[in-house]
Every structure is written in C-alpha cells, then in structure tokens.
Design a protein around this nucleic acid. Structure first.
Lengths: 209, 209
DNA sequence: CTCTAAGCAAGGTTATTCCTCCTTCGGGAC
DNA sequence: GTCCCGAAGGAGGAATAACCTTGCTTAGAG
C-alpha cells in the first residue's frame, strides 16, 4: 500500500549497486557481494538482484562467474552490440547521429595528437596501413589505427567515448574507408597540418552509404 | 553431460527473442508475448525470461507496462550513453579530460549548425549574451547558449552526450567563460566562418585553470 | 608432503505463491 | 439505447524455497 512505488525493485537495486561500487571504490576485477548477501543487505528477493545483475552483465559492466561470484569488469561493448542490430535497422536518423559522433571523436583525436606525434608513431601507423590489403581487414585497420591514436593522446575519457560509439556504429553501418584515406591522413600528419580532413572524412562516409 | 552447456539460459532467451522479433517482423510499439507465454514456449522458467527482459529493458530496447505487457520500443542510442556515462565518466575524470570532451562537443555543434543558421537564431543568441551581466549567471549563459545550438542541430545523441558531460563537469569544476568569448563567436557566426574558434576556446580554458 | 574427497559458498534455474495494475465485458440504472 | 460500475482474467512485480552445478578450501588418508 502506501501509494504504490512506481520504481521497480531491480532499478532500485541498480542504484544501490552503483552506490556500493562508488562507496567501496571498486575497480575492475574487484568482487561484488554475492547475490544472497546483497539480497539480504538490501531486503529484496534474490530474483530482483539477479535481474539487476543480468542487466549490468549485458551492458558489459560486470562479469559473473559460476561458483565464484560477480566481479567488476573493464567496460567493453559486448553482447549488447550483437543484439542491437535487430532493434536499430530502420532508424536512419540513429545511423546518421552515430556516424556524426564517430567522426567528431576521430577528428578530435587526430587534432589532439598532432603536436605529440613522433617518427616512431608515424612509422607504426604506416605499417598498419601498408599491412592491410584485403577488404576484409578494412574494419580492423580502422579500429587499430584510431585506437593507437587514442592511446597516444592519453585521454582515457575520449577513448572510452569512442569505443562506445564505435561499437554501436558498427552494428548499424559498415564504416569501411578506402586505404587512400589513411594514406592521405598520414601524409598530412607528417607535414604537421590537417586542413581538409573533415571534408575527406565526409567524402568517405558518402561513398559507403 | 554432453559437454555441459556454457551458455546461460537467459542468453539463449535473448537470442530466441531476437529471432522471434525478426520472424514476426515486429516494429516499435508491437507487443511481445507475455512472460508466462514465452516461458512455456521456450521451456524455461519465468524468472529466466524476466532476467532477459529486464536486461533488454535497461538497454532501452523494450518497454514493459505493468498489467499490459511488453512492447518493442524505438531505439535511442543516447539512452545507453546515459547509462554508461556514470561508469565512463567515473574512470577518467581529470579536469583536462572533461574540458577536452566538452570543448570537442561544443566546437562540433557550432560547426554543424553553421550552414543552418538564420538571422532569427543569431538574434536569439545575441539577446542571451547581452542579457547576461552578472558573473553569477555566467554558467547559465553557457548552458543556454549551447543548448540552443544543439537544438538547432537536431542531433539528439550529441546533445545528450554534451548534457551529461556538462552536468558532470560542473559538479566537479568551474568552467566559466568571459562574455567576450560569446561575442566573438557570434561575430564570426554572422560572417559564416569560424577559424580561430579552437584557439579562443583553449585560451578561455587556461584562464579558468 | 601430497593427493583426494568432503564440505561449503556462489551462481544457475525452476516452481510456486501472492500482489497489483490494466483491460475487457456484462449487467443494471437511467 | 447509452452510460457507469464492478467482477474476472490477463499480465507484470516480487518473494521465497528448493535443487543443481561449479569452484575453492580444507581436513584427512596415504
């Protein structure tokens, strides 16, 4: 009675778990309380705890190992990504928004690392591009290329954002770029200036539409 | 037992639900089978169905209305971005990283709306800036200014990302800008070109360090 | 000291029960 | 005939108990 809570228990549990994590400063790899323990601690049924845990697991935020327990995990787009494809298909708008966000992040990282770039970096990137011949590897190249840039930049936040968006984007759309794109980028990187980058990028996106 | 299933039931359910959706061509708004129905159809416990459903619900892929049933939902990527933001922002929260992400988004939105800008828009923004005198209102100005730009751009994903970062950043640090910044931006907006924007931005950020 | 088996803790899964909310539908009042 | 109200059924929300499997720990046999 007392005015019926609109909030579902499992949502409340999610909040509590989040609070627990922050309070105890849990990092990836650390163990969360057991389902039974939490169930008693929060005064909710074990099923509700499990519903919350399964949700977090699908998100890729926790990992649960049978016979051992539930653990924090470094976030990586995961099971979720595969599922999304079924649900997104029709949304042309979502597609565009994801592409825009992805481009923004990738342009930004290039901009940021430009002053930090050394010959070693350029060489590494050149090898990546030259080592890619088949179209099949095209996506891998794109990912490695930019992942490397994000590592150079050292900005963990931007990196996370990119990984997130990249994961989503790839379920919706094939973002393969022509190798000439990377070659041009490298060329101008060595010159230390990237003026037309945005327009190249947009050209590539139109091609693959 | 025949090599022990490693796959959890709720994961299997997820696949089955996905298959069901594709097979029956369900679109947003359509109803999914009830928990009890699915439970019987797939020969699994209702709890397992619920675990799968709660996970999908958290991702924003389905919506479940008590007393009515479970329905497909229009996918919105920013829903997920929001969920993950807590954890992502939590991982990397130096002022520098936050500022970089914020700047990136704000520069991006300016870039995007530039071709769409009309006199009406510019006038609205001018009034915002001129109507702000006290420092106390400085943050409000910044928020209204860019919120308006994001609305013009119509990109909900970028908007949501910005709101999350802006909100988080302001609880941790003070990011006030001088009014001359907005004046300069407006000036160049009317000229239709924004060359030095990035450097102005960085100058402002250094001031507030 | 080493190996093994028992025991325990933790997740995996199902079933039952009860509750609350929403929709539907039928009967009676007007 | 129309409108309103209430009962019934359907659907999700939640708790609890029971039982299984897995993995770790540990005490005891050798």
């Amino acid at each position: 009675m007392s005015g019926s809570q609109k909030v579902k228990v499992y949502e409340e549990v999610l909040q509590q778990v989040k609070a627990y994590i922050e309070e105890h400063h849990l990092s990836p790899g650390d163990k969360l309380p057991s389902e039974r323990e939490l169930s008693e601690l929060l005064n909710v049924g074990r099923s509700s705890i499990r519903e919350a845990f399964r949700a977090l697991e699908l998100l890729g935020l926790i990992e649960t190992r049978r016979g051992e327990g539930t653990f924090m995990r470094t976030y990586r787009p995961y099971h979720m990504v595969e599922l999304l494809s079924t649900f997104i298909l029709h949304e042309a708008r979502t597609k565009k928004e994801l592409a825009a966000a992805k481009m923004m992040l990738e342009l930004e990282v290039i901009n940021k690392i430009l002053p930090l770039l050394t010959e070693v970096h350029v060489e590494h990137l050149t090898n990546l591009v030259k080592g890619t011949t088949s179209e099949k590897e095209a996506h891998t190249l794109h990912h490695s290329f930019f992942q490397y840039l994000f590592e150079i930049s050292g900005n963990e936040l931007l990196n996370r954002m990119w990984q997130l968006i990249d994961g989503f984007a790839n379920t919706v759309h094939d973002f393969s770029f022509s190798t000439s794109f990377y070659e041009k980028v490298l060329e101008e990187m060595e010159r230390g200036k990237l003026n037309n980058l945005r327009s190249w990028y947009e050209k590539e996106l139109n091609l693959s539409n």
